[in-house]
Amino acid sequence: MKWRSLLLGSLLLLLLWQLLSWAINRPIVPPPLDILQTFVREMRGGELQTHFWVSSRRVILAILLALVTGVPAGLALGQFRRLDRLLAPLIYVTYPAPKIVFLPIFILLFGLGDLSKVLIIAFVLFFQILVVVRDEAANVRPEQLASVRSLGAGRLALLRFVYMPATLPAVLTAVRVSIGTAVAVLFFAESIATRTGLGYYIINDAFARVAYKEVYAGVLAMSLLGLALYFLTDWAERRLAPWMFVE
């Protein structure tokens, strides 16, 4: 079903694009097969491949970093009400603020290399994961806790046998929802003051050279990166949370 949707969706997109290209009939909307050809050429021999891997590494590291910081922080806030009461107002105030505006500060603090990009993406995702995990951990049923405690579980065992599995689906959902944001932040972070990554390739390389087909090849690479992460999350959910899929 999933693969069929993917195939049908891709075919429909190709078709619509082709129609659009015919209708506009200018180099700014090249036909899809030309774009695919450029994409394959650039990915095999050109610079696109290097930029693709650089970007993938950045965004994956950032997601992992956001997970290893956001999940424990959310679990802690969800379990310790007093800590949550102390920090909740701070999260409430800062949550809606667009974290991307801190990019210049991150660049000043962490330099022009990978570190500042990974950190700004992780910073954006951290809050989304934190809030979801906190709410999920706080909503664990007291009956569940009482009955598992009565089997002899202390705080660590509760974390292992109750809180972690209880919050896992929400974590994966948070990651899935965050992927779009992560790739968008990546694009923006890579489009200034850098010489690597898909953002650089699209804006500072292809677009500056008015090489439309290369621009689209870069856009395609970035979309595929997002799609691949999305599928990876789906796969992880089926592996790690099989109870979500029973009738």
Binding site: E143, A146, S147, R149
Partner: peptide, 21 residues
């Protein structure tokens, strides 16, 4: 002073882990 494995407890509902077989 704390729950013990030797003292069993069965509740009316919601005691099972929904994510576990």
């Amino acid at each position: 002073t704390r729950p013990r494995a030797r003292i069993g407890l069965i509740l009316q509902s919601h005691g099972l882990l929904p994510w576990a077989t």
